[in-house]
Computed example of a mutant assay.
Amino acid sequence: MSDNKTTHFGYKTVNNEEKAGLVAGVFHSVAAKYDLMNDLMSGGVHRIWKRFTIEVSGVRRGHRVLDIAGGTGDLAAKFSRLVGPTGEVVLADINDSMLKVGRDKLIDRGVCSNINYVQADAQYLPFPDNHFDCITIAFGLRNVTDKDKALRSMLRVLKPGGRLLVLEFSKPENELLSKAYDNYSFKLLPKMGKLITDDADSYQYLAESIRMHPDQQTLKEMMDDAGFAMTEFYNMTGGIVALHKGVKP
């Protein structure tokens, strides 16, 4: 799979080298209203999903945490408080618009002393081996061109015993919920995007990208293949979202 010259951008098939630029266009477009749209799209439930991720992380004072595709900094702000002045949080995002919005938001909140900001591609993380106690990627893995390569990159920079947490939209467990979710995603979501951000196409892509993302079991197997141990996942909101956890042996 990783050797293919093409990949998916939503439902479209594109060359591998094109995808990063296309995804960048989506997030440049939505960055300024990203937090507002998250609250509207999920009814605020994304905050509960992220809180659970923090609880499962096991992060404590003095730890070094990498938040990939950290966007506007929700997880980074919480990790900053947990690791304290002796710890470090790196908020990484491939998209400079999202990184700027996140940095400005956290600085405005006075959350900045132990957070560093790095523009980085998840497939080629610019950090030393065995460096982080915990890595999180929330709602970002589905946008990565080569997910297998990214998972191996994350494994490399984790310390032995360190945890990877992947929070991502997944496959609903119930057929009725799945149909209702499809109606919401493909009919309401682009209209909300048009109304709030004047960009229906980006939210159409986001809905499609969720459907093209590996299901819960497939992603667990991908983490196993990348070298993670003790992999497991937790379904939330009926499987609309899943949190995958893996540990570096």
Rank of each mutant, 00 (worst) to 15 (best):
L206I: 12
G102H: 02
D224E: 09
D198H: 14
F132K: 06
V89S: 08
F139D: 07
G43I: 09
S80Y: 00
L155W: 14
P126D: 11
D35L: 07
F127H: 07
M41N: 12
D198G: 12
V89D: 15
L219T: 09
V26D: 08
C134Y: 07
Y117L: 02
V45H: 12
S170I: 09
V26F: 03
H213T: 00
L206C: 07
E168Y: 14
N174P: 07
K78W: 04
F52S: 09
I240G: 08
A32Q: 14
I196C: 10
E232T: 12
Q217Y: 00
L125V: 00
M41G: 06
I210Q: 03
D198M: 11
G246M: 06
E168K: 05
F186Q: 13
L195Q: 06
G162S: 00
W49I: 08
M98I: 02
A69H: 04
T197Y: 05
L151M: 03
S202Q: 13
E18Q: 14
V59G: 15
K245C: 05
K100F: 06
V56Y: 15
H46I: 13
M154D: 04
M37Y: 06
L189R: 10
L177K: 05
K19V: 10
A150S: 13
G10D: 05
A242Q: 02
Y117K: 09
S113E: 15
L189Y: 14
V101E: 14
G239L: 14
Q217W: 00
Q119Y: 01
A138V: 01
V14E: 03
D67E: 09
L22A: 07
K105Q: 11
L106I: 03
H8G: 03
S97P: 05
L141S: 01
Y203N: 00
G71L: 03
S2M: 10
N174R: 10
V56Q: 15
S57Y: 10
A92C: 04
S178L: 12
E17S: 15
P128E: 12
A242H: 10
D104P: 00
V59T: 02
K19A: 05
T13E: 11
F9W: 02
H46A: 11
K191S: 11
H63S: 10
Q217V: 10
N95A: 04
F233L: 06
A180T: 04
F228M: 05
G227H: 13
K171M: 00
L66T: 03
L125A: 10
H63N: 15
